[in-house]
Design a protein around this nucleic acid. Structure first.
Length: 501
RNA sequence: GGGCCGGUAGCUCAGUCGGUAGAGCAACGGCCUUUUAAGCCGUUGGUCCCAGGUUCGACCCCUGGCCGGCUCACCA
């Protein structure tokens, strides 16, 4: 580390910046002062005065103190222009030798670099071209940049640098900031929506002795003092339902889940979900709730029920399309009816779709694989697919009129699963049987099959009311609302292989 | 893990048939009192991802590796 740092200083640009730092210090200027008071954030000012062209009115704004990072710098003899930017916006500043004094102007101001963070005090005016500008009478260096920013016009494009040094991406690429602002608003919408309906927000363990609530391979970690292995949660589900048993009959949690699986443009090992559970409701109620949540959210954030995603138009106007899993296979997947109902023919059909059927025994699993291949990518507008096979849904309750089908739905948008919901299985004996069947799958080599969780069954024995629960993937939802093709574009610091030299 | 594409200055990118590397921006010096991709004059800046090989000679061709992107597989 030391050596590479030393080598980097051989680079002239870095050396020049270091020399400036030394020069400032020798002039008695602290390049990293402890504090600076601002009177306004930049966006407040630009918003308030964006239509004000009367010089007197602009003066009435008074003596302002603003601060931000220098994004452009145009020296023009005895005067100069620069733009400074903070989280809320950017504003031009006008700096003259006349106001700052020759010594300050020549020896400090002119040595500043794009990327330095400064505080500027002054009054507002409009330039010849009409741009709102701060006429600076006092300027302070607040933080000296020691590495050059990426090029101003093309910005930072290198994808790896954008992810590894996300701060550079945020500084240089404005739309990236918008993506994460939208992500924050999505979470606000969900939180407000649920709280308004009487849900309480809770936090349950991310480190669990038995990872449950989904079919996935977990990460393992170790607690030294207890000398036990723990798993990073793959879902909060079983803990949230314990809380419903405890009387928190409307709960939700927004947080990370971790699945030890491949990385792709649709999958990051850690991702964010909201899960919520509502007692005295069933999956039909959640369909309606989901429609309201998402359509309201899209209208609030995008200003319309209709959005563009990767060139496709997606319409969130409620009610959403609804189709049963069985019908979807036949009508959308174009699977002949007699095939869907015959396990032997199904296997043959799956083989022709290049699905590896060697490890698949359950009919439900076959149907699910075929569904993924033939139906999923055709569900562009929000579509609720309901009534799933029982053997791929170990935590969902069977229909009262058909024990092989569970009361479960998934919501698909833009060909991707966004939400998964069901009427919760609250019969402890049934749950134990389902876990036992999952254990059997595990023994046969399915590492994603559910583990037995006796504690959870004990909780059910104390009585879980009729409850419906749902999980919504925040990352994928954000992708759709920000027109992002990759999940890495909506995760600030996506999982990457560590850099090695 | 397979396939395809890529890695050249701080950034964005060129680089012809194999003849020892270029532009713009940034940086540095100078001029400039309303600019905004400011402008003009001048200067600097390179482990061409790494290691081998072929060759008189490799950014270029070959082999292996590292890193990344897309995609398929795996997987919500």
């Amino acid at each position: 580390m030391q050596e590479s740092h030393y080598q980097e200083l051989e680079n002239k640009i870095l050396k020049d910046l270091r020399e400036k730092l030394q020069k400032f210090k020798s002039m008695g200027i602290n390049p990293y002062p402890n504090r600076y008071r601002i009177t306004h954030r930049i966006g407040e000012i630009t918003e308030k005065y964006k239509d004000e062209f009367n010089e007197e009115k602009l003066k009435e704004a008074g003596h302002l103190s603003l601060a931000g990072r220098i994004m452009s710098l145009r020296f023009h003899g005895k005067i100069s222009f620069a733009h400074i930017k903070d989280q809320t916006g950017k504003i031009q500043i006008y700096v003259s030798k006349e106001k700052l004094g020759e010594n300050f102007y020549n020896n400090l101001f002119k040595k500043l670099d794009v990327g330095d963070i400064v505080g500027a005090k002054g009054t507002l005016f409009r330039t010849k071209t009409g741009e709102l500008t701060l006429d600076v009478d006092e300027l302070n260096l607040l933080s000296k940049i020691l590495r050059p920013l990426p090029e101003k016009w093309h910005g930072l494009k290198d994808v790896e640098t954008r992810y590894r040094q996300r701060y550079l991406d945020l500084i240089m690429n404005n739309h990236v900031k918008e993506v994460f602002i939208t992500r924050s608003r999505i979470i606000d919408c969900i939180r407000n929506f649920l709280k308004n309906r009487g849900f309480i927000e809770v936090e349950t363990p991310m480190m669990q002795p038995i990872p449950g609530g989904a079919n996935a391979r977990p990460f393992i970690t170790h607690h030294n003092a207890l000398d036990i292995d723990l798993y990073l949660r793959i879902a909060p589900e079983l803990y949230l339902k314990r809380l419903v048993v405890g009387g928190f009959d409307r709960v939700f949690e927004i947080g990370k889940c971790f699945r030890n699986e491949g990385i792709s443009s649709q999958h990051n090992p850690e991702f964010t979900m909201v899960e919520f559970y509502m007692a005295y409701a069933d999956y039909r109620d959640l369909m309606q709730l989901t429609e309201e949540l998402l359509s309201n959210m899209v209208r609030e954030i995008k200003g319309s029920y209709t959005i563009e995603y990767q060139g496709k138009t997606i319409n969130f106007t409620p009610p959403f399309k609804k189709i049963s899993f069985h019908e979807a296979l036949i009508e959308i997947g174009k699977i002949p009816k007699e095939v869907v109902e015959d396990k032997i023919k199904l296997k043959e059909f799956a083989r022709n779709l290049e699905i590896d059927v060697s490890k698949i025994e359950k009919k439900g699993k076959l149907l699910a694989e075929i569904f993924e291949k033939t139906v999923e990518d055709k569900l562009i507008d929000p579509t609720i697919v309901y009534d799933f096979p029982k053997d791929i849904s170990p935590l969902a309750k069977s229909r009262e009129d058909n024990p092989e089908i569970v009361e479960r739905f998934e919501l698909f948008i833009a060909g991707r699963e966004i939400a998964n919901a069901y009427t919760e299985l609250n019969d402890p004996d049934d749950q134990r049987d389902r876990f036992l069947k999952q254990l059997e799958e595990r023994r046969k080599g399915d590492e994603e099959a559910h583990m037995m969780d006796e504690d959870y069954i004990v909780a059910l024995e104390y009585g879980l009311p009729p409850t419906a629960g749902e999980g919504i993937g925040i990352d994928r939802l954000t992708m759709i609302l920000t027109d992002s093709p990759s999940v890495r574009d909506v995760i600030l610091f996506p999982t990457l292989r560590p850099e090695q030299k």
